[in-house]
Protein backbone atom coordinates (compact mmCIF):
# COMPACT_ATOMS: atom_id res chain seq x y z
CA UNK A 1 0.00 0.00 0.00
CA UNK A 2 2.78 2.41 0.87
CA UNK A 3 4.58 1.79 -2.39
CA UNK A 4 1.41 2.46 -4.40
CA UNK A 5 0.83 5.70 -2.55
CA UNK A 6 4.35 6.84 -3.19
CA UNK A 7 4.25 5.88 -6.83
CA UNK A 8 0.92 7.60 -7.35
CA UNK A 9 1.73 10.75 -5.45
CA UNK A 10 4.85 11.11 -7.56
CA UNK A 11 2.96 10.80 -10.80
CA UNK A 12 -0.26 12.60 -10.08
CA UNK A 13 1.17 16.04 -9.52
CA UNK A 14 0.82 17.72 -12.86
CA UNK A 15 -0.69 14.62 -14.50
CA UNK A 16 -3.27 16.19 -16.83
CA UNK A 17 -5.68 13.27 -16.44
CA UNK A 18 -5.70 13.61 -12.68
CA UNK A 19 -6.03 17.38 -12.76
CA UNK A 20 -8.82 17.21 -15.30
CA UNK A 21 -10.92 14.35 -14.01
CA UNK A 22 -10.16 13.50 -10.40
CA UNK A 23 -10.86 14.93 -6.98
CA UNK A 24 -7.20 15.29 -6.21
CA UNK A 25 -7.79 15.24 -2.44
CA UNK A 26 -9.27 11.75 -2.73
CA UNK A 27 -6.35 10.15 -4.56
CA UNK A 28 -4.31 8.08 -4.19
CA UNK A 29 -6.72 5.48 -2.84
CA UNK A 30 -5.83 2.55 -0.64
CA UNK A 31 -5.48 -0.25 -3.18
CA UNK A 32 -2.81 -2.84 -2.51
CA UNK A 33 0.53 -2.90 -4.23
CA UNK A 34 0.15 -4.24 -7.74
CA UNK A 35 -3.66 -4.08 -7.82
CA UNK A 36 -5.21 -3.65 -11.27
CA UNK A 37 -7.97 -1.24 -10.27
CA UNK A 38 -5.91 1.93 -10.73
CA UNK A 39 -4.77 0.79 -14.17
CA UNK A 40 -8.38 0.33 -15.26
CA UNK A 41 -9.45 3.71 -13.89
CA UNK A 42 -6.58 5.20 -15.87
CA UNK A 43 -7.87 3.50 -19.06
CA UNK A 44 -11.30 5.06 -18.51
CA UNK A 45 -9.83 8.54 -18.03
CA UNK A 46 -7.75 8.14 -21.19
CA UNK A 47 -10.85 7.10 -23.11
CA UNK A 48 -12.73 10.14 -21.80
CA UNK A 49 -9.89 12.44 -22.76
CA UNK A 50 -9.71 11.02 -26.27
CA UNK A 51 -13.49 11.39 -26.62
CA UNK A 52 -13.26 14.95 -25.34
CA UNK A 53 -15.68 14.26 -22.50
CA UNK A 54 -15.72 16.24 -19.26
CA UNK A 55 -16.88 15.17 -15.81
CA UNK A 56 -20.19 16.89 -16.56
CA UNK A 57 -20.95 14.45 -19.39
CA UNK A 58 -20.51 11.25 -17.43
CA UNK A 59 -22.03 9.86 -14.23
CA UNK A 60 -19.89 7.25 -12.46
CA UNK A 61 -21.65 4.43 -10.66
CA UNK A 62 -20.33 1.55 -8.60
CA UNK A 63 -21.48 -1.30 -6.39
CA UNK A 64 -19.71 -2.88 -3.41
CA UNK A 65 -16.32 -4.56 -3.52
CA UNK A 66 -12.70 -3.46 -3.89
CA UNK A 67 -13.44 -2.58 -7.47
CA UNK A 68 -16.10 -0.12 -6.40
CA UNK A 69 -14.66 1.19 -3.19
CA UNK A 70 -11.32 2.07 -4.74
CA UNK A 71 -12.78 4.26 -7.47
CA UNK A 72 -15.74 5.81 -5.59
CA UNK A 73 -15.46 9.57 -5.00
CA UNK A 74 -12.22 9.80 -6.93
CA UNK A 75 -13.99 11.36 -9.93
CA UNK A 76 -15.01 14.96 -10.30
CA UNK A 77 -18.72 14.98 -11.10
CA UNK A 78 -21.32 12.53 -9.86
CA UNK A 79 -20.24 9.37 -8.04
CA UNK A 80 -23.15 7.10 -7.19
CA UNK A 81 -22.03 4.02 -5.30
CA UNK A 82 -24.91 1.58 -4.89
CA UNK A 83 -25.30 -1.39 -2.55
CA UNK A 84 -23.78 -4.77 -3.44
CA UNK A 85 -24.91 -5.72 -6.96
CA UNK A 86 -27.37 -2.86 -7.39
CA UNK A 87 -25.59 -0.25 -9.50
CA UNK A 88 -27.41 -1.34 -12.66
CA UNK A 89 -31.02 -0.71 -11.55
CA UNK A 90 -29.93 2.62 -10.02
CA UNK A 91 -28.38 3.61 -13.36
CA UNK A 92 -31.32 2.29 -15.38
CA UNK A 93 -33.61 4.75 -13.61
CA UNK A 94 -31.12 7.63 -13.72
CA UNK A 95 -30.75 7.14 -17.48
CA UNK A 96 -34.51 7.69 -17.90
CA UNK A 97 -34.57 10.81 -15.79
CA UNK A 98 -31.33 12.25 -17.23
CA UNK A 99 -31.16 10.77 -20.76
CA UNK A 100 -28.53 13.21 -22.05
CA UNK A 101 -25.88 11.81 -19.71
CA UNK A 102 -23.48 8.92 -20.19
CA UNK A 103 -23.19 6.36 -17.40
CA UNK A 104 -20.13 4.30 -16.57
CA UNK A 105 -20.52 1.50 -14.04
CA UNK A 106 -17.50 0.07 -12.24
CA UNK A 107 -18.25 -3.34 -10.86
CA UNK A 108 -16.56 -6.50 -9.68
CA UNK A 109 -17.11 -10.05 -10.85
CA UNK A 110 -18.96 -10.89 -7.63
CA UNK A 111 -20.90 -7.64 -7.62
CA UNK A 112 -22.10 -8.09 -11.19
CA UNK A 113 -22.03 -11.80 -12.02
CA UNK A 114 -23.27 -13.15 -8.67
CA UNK A 115 -25.48 -10.88 -6.56
CA UNK A 116 -26.21 -8.41 -9.38
CA UNK A 117 -26.59 -10.95 -12.16
CA UNK A 118 -30.34 -10.62 -12.54
CA UNK A 119 -30.08 -6.87 -13.07
CA UNK A 120 -27.15 -7.29 -15.48
CA UNK A 121 -29.03 -9.74 -17.70
CA UNK A 122 -32.14 -7.57 -17.82
CA UNK A 123 -30.25 -4.32 -18.48
CA UNK A 124 -28.57 -6.06 -21.43
CA UNK A 125 -31.98 -7.28 -22.62
CA UNK A 126 -33.39 -3.76 -22.33
CA UNK A 127 -30.28 -2.32 -24.02
CA UNK A 128 -30.05 0.47 -21.45
CA UNK A 129 -27.41 2.98 -22.52
CA UNK A 130 -24.59 2.44 -20.04
CA UNK A 131 -21.03 1.16 -20.04
CA UNK A 132 -20.45 -1.60 -17.53
CA UNK A 133 -16.83 -2.33 -16.69
CA UNK A 134 -16.46 -5.59 -14.82
CA UNK A 135 -13.05 -5.78 -13.21
CA UNK A 136 -12.45 -9.49 -12.95
CA UNK A 137 -10.08 -10.56 -10.21
CA UNK A 138 -11.63 -14.06 -10.17
CA UNK A 139 -12.39 -13.82 -6.46
CA UNK A 140 -14.23 -11.90 -3.76
CA UNK A 141 -11.38 -9.69 -2.70
CA UNK A 142 -13.22 -7.35 -0.33
CA UNK A 143 -14.21 -10.25 1.87
CA UNK A 144 -10.65 -11.57 1.52
CA UNK A 145 -10.41 -14.20 -1.13
CA UNK A 146 -13.46 -16.44 -1.50
CA UNK A 147 -14.38 -17.98 -4.85
CA UNK A 148 -16.68 -16.19 -7.29
CA UNK A 149 -18.75 -17.43 -10.25
CA UNK A 150 -15.76 -16.35 -12.37
CA UNK A 151 -13.25 -18.53 -10.49
CA UNK A 152 -11.73 -21.20 -12.77
CA UNK A 153 -12.47 -24.83 -11.90
CA UNK A 154 -9.95 -26.39 -9.60
CA UNK A 155 -8.67 -23.10 -8.19
CA UNK A 156 -7.99 -23.06 -4.46
CA UNK A 157 -9.39 -20.04 -2.64
CA UNK A 158 -10.69 -19.43 0.87
CA UNK A 159 -14.01 -21.22 0.23
CA UNK A 160 -12.65 -23.82 -2.18
CA UNK A 161 -10.00 -25.51 -0.02
CA UNK A 162 -10.30 -28.71 -2.09
CA UNK A 163 -10.27 -26.86 -5.40
CA UNK A 164 -13.25 -25.11 -7.02
CA UNK A 165 -15.77 -27.77 -8.01
CA UNK A 166 -18.09 -25.42 -9.92
CA UNK A 167 -17.77 -24.47 -13.56
CA UNK A 168 -16.72 -20.93 -14.43
CA UNK A 169 -19.26 -18.39 -15.65
CA UNK A 170 -18.90 -17.00 -19.17
CA UNK A 171 -20.14 -13.50 -18.33
CA UNK A 172 -19.42 -12.00 -21.76
CA UNK A 173 -21.31 -14.87 -23.39
CA UNK A 174 -24.33 -14.03 -21.27
CA UNK A 175 -23.97 -10.31 -22.07
CA UNK A 176 -24.16 -11.20 -25.78
CA UNK A 177 -26.98 -13.71 -25.37
CA UNK A 178 -29.05 -11.32 -23.26
CA UNK A 179 -28.80 -8.60 -25.89
CA UNK A 180 -25.86 -6.34 -25.03
CA UNK A 181 -24.84 -4.26 -28.05
CA UNK A 182 -21.12 -3.92 -27.35
CA UNK A 183 -19.23 -6.69 -25.59
CA UNK A 184 -15.46 -6.93 -25.18
CA UNK A 185 -12.98 -8.78 -23.01
CA UNK A 186 -9.47 -7.61 -22.17
CA UNK A 187 -6.72 -7.83 -19.60
CA UNK A 188 -5.05 -4.91 -17.84
CA UNK A 189 -1.96 -5.61 -19.93
CA UNK A 190 -3.72 -4.62 -23.15
CA UNK A 191 -3.83 -0.88 -22.65
CA UNK A 192 -4.48 0.39 -26.17
CA UNK A 193 -7.12 -2.22 -27.13
CA UNK A 194 -8.85 -1.71 -23.80
CA UNK A 195 -8.93 2.08 -24.13
CA UNK A 196 -10.30 1.68 -27.65
CA UNK A 197 -13.01 -0.66 -26.40
CA UNK A 198 -13.96 1.73 -23.60
CA UNK A 199 -14.28 4.51 -26.16
CA UNK A 200 -16.52 2.37 -28.35
CA UNK A 201 -18.52 1.30 -25.33
CA UNK A 202 -19.16 4.87 -24.23
CA UNK A 203 -20.07 5.91 -27.78
CA UNK A 204 -22.41 2.96 -28.23
CA UNK A 205 -25.97 4.08 -27.52
CA UNK A 206 -26.98 0.94 -25.70
CA UNK A 207 -25.76 -1.63 -23.20
CA UNK A 208 -21.99 -2.03 -23.38
CA UNK A 209 -20.13 -4.59 -21.36
CA UNK A 210 -16.37 -4.87 -20.92
CA UNK A 211 -14.73 -7.52 -18.80
CA UNK A 212 -11.15 -6.74 -17.80
CA UNK A 213 -9.02 -9.41 -16.16
CA UNK A 214 -6.88 -7.75 -13.51
CA UNK A 215 -4.35 -8.78 -10.91
CA UNK A 216 -5.27 -9.09 -7.24
CA UNK A 217 -1.93 -10.14 -5.79
CA UNK A 218 -3.24 -9.91 -2.24
CA UNK A 219 -5.81 -12.71 -2.55
CA UNK A 220 -5.81 -14.32 -6.00
CA UNK A 221 -2.03 -14.21 -5.98
CA UNK A 222 -1.59 -15.34 -2.42
CA UNK A 223 -4.12 -18.19 -2.35
CA UNK A 224 -4.41 -19.39 -5.94
CA UNK A 225 -1.00 -18.62 -7.34
CA UNK A 226 0.84 -19.10 -4.05
CA UNK A 227 2.60 -15.73 -4.38
CA UNK A 228 1.51 -12.17 -3.65
CA UNK A 229 4.06 -10.90 -6.09
CA UNK A 230 2.38 -8.43 -8.43
CA UNK A 231 4.56 -9.30 -11.40
CA UNK A 232 3.88 -13.02 -11.02
CA UNK A 233 0.17 -12.27 -11.07
CA UNK A 234 0.50 -10.14 -14.21
CA UNK A 235 2.56 -12.79 -15.98
CA UNK A 236 -0.08 -15.39 -15.15
CA UNK A 237 -2.76 -13.15 -16.68
CA UNK A 238 -0.60 -12.49 -19.72
CA UNK A 239 -0.15 -16.19 -20.27
CA UNK A 240 -3.90 -16.87 -20.00
CA UNK A 241 -4.55 -14.33 -22.74
CA UNK A 242 -1.65 -15.48 -24.90
CA UNK A 243 -2.72 -19.12 -24.95
CA UNK A 244 -6.27 -18.11 -25.78
CA UNK A 245 -7.58 -19.78 -22.63
CA UNK A 246 -8.89 -16.34 -21.80
CA UNK A 247 -10.20 -15.04 -25.13
CA UNK A 248 -9.77 -11.29 -25.48
CA UNK A 249 -10.88 -8.67 -27.99
CA UNK A 250 -14.16 -7.17 -29.13
CA UNK A 251 -16.61 -10.08 -29.00
CA UNK A 252 -19.84 -8.52 -30.21
CA UNK A 253 -21.18 -5.33 -31.76
CA UNK A 254 -24.80 -4.70 -32.75
CA UNK A 255 -27.32 -1.91 -33.20
CA UNK A 256 -30.68 -2.06 -31.50
CA UNK A 257 -33.24 0.40 -30.15
CA UNK A 258 -32.19 1.82 -26.81
CA UNK A 259 -34.28 1.56 -23.65
CA UNK A 260 -34.76 5.24 -22.78
CA UNK A 261 -35.58 6.08 -26.41
CA UNK A 262 -38.26 3.39 -26.44
CA UNK A 263 -39.68 4.69 -23.17
CA UNK A 264 -39.92 8.18 -24.63
CA UNK A 265 -41.75 6.76 -27.63
CA UNK A 266 -44.22 5.22 -25.20
CA UNK A 267 -44.80 8.65 -23.69
CA UNK A 268 -45.45 10.07 -27.17
CA UNK A 269 -47.96 7.29 -27.88
CA UNK A 270 -49.73 7.83 -24.59
CA UNK A 271 -49.88 11.60 -24.98
CA UNK A 272 -51.11 11.43 -28.57
CA UNK A 273 -54.02 9.30 -27.44
CA UNK A 274 -55.27 11.21 -24.46
CA UNK A 275 -55.09 14.49 -22.62
CA UNK A 276 -52.62 14.55 -19.77
CA UNK A 277 -55.17 15.99 -17.39
CA UNK A 278 -56.72 13.08 -15.66
CA UNK A 279 -58.00 9.55 -15.54
CA UNK A 280 -60.26 8.38 -18.33
CA UNK A 281 -62.99 6.65 -16.35
CA UNK A 282 -65.19 9.22 -14.69
CA UNK A 283 -68.22 7.98 -12.85
CA UNK A 284 -70.41 11.01 -12.48
Amino acid sequence: MRITEMALSETYVGNPLVEKYLRTKNVPTKTCTGCGIGIIENFVLNAMLELDLTHEDVVFAMGVGCTSRQVFATFKGDNVDALHGRAIPVVTAMKLVKPHLKFVVFTGDGDLAAIGNNHFVHAARRNVDMTVIMMNNMNYASTSGQHAPTTPMGMVLQTTPYGNDEPMYDVCGVAVAAGGTFVARHTVLQSRPTINSIKKAIQNVGFSFIEILMPCPTYLGRYALKSSDAVACLLWIKELARTGEYKTGVLHEATRAEFSDLKRQTIEKAQAGRSAEGPAVIMS
Binding site: V80, R86, P89, V90, T92, M94, L96, V97, K98, I267
Partner: peptide, 21 residues
Protein backbone atom coordinates in the same frame (compact mmCIF):
# COMPACT_ATOMS: atom_id res chain seq x y z
CA UNK B 1 -41.96 6.46 -16.70
CA UNK B 2 -43.19 3.08 -15.57
CA UNK B 3 -40.59 0.32 -15.57
CA UNK B 4 -41.38 -3.22 -14.56
CA UNK B 5 -38.21 -4.47 -12.94
CA UNK B 6 -36.89 -7.99 -12.75
CA UNK B 7 -37.69 -8.17 -9.04
CA UNK B 8 -38.39 -5.92 -6.06
CA UNK B 9 -34.67 -5.50 -5.41
CA UNK B 10 -34.40 -3.94 -8.85
CA UNK B 11 -37.47 -1.81 -8.16
CA UNK B 12 -36.36 -0.29 -4.87
CA UNK B 13 -32.89 0.52 -6.13
CA UNK B 14 -34.27 1.98 -9.35
CA UNK B 15 -36.54 4.23 -7.32
CA UNK B 16 -33.44 5.42 -5.45
CA UNK B 17 -31.75 6.15 -8.78
CA UNK B 18 -34.73 8.03 -10.18
CA UNK B 19 -34.96 10.16 -7.06
CA UNK B 20 -31.22 10.86 -7.02
CA UNK B 21 -31.62 12.09 -10.59
Amino acid sequence: YYVQFEDELGSIHAVCGASLA
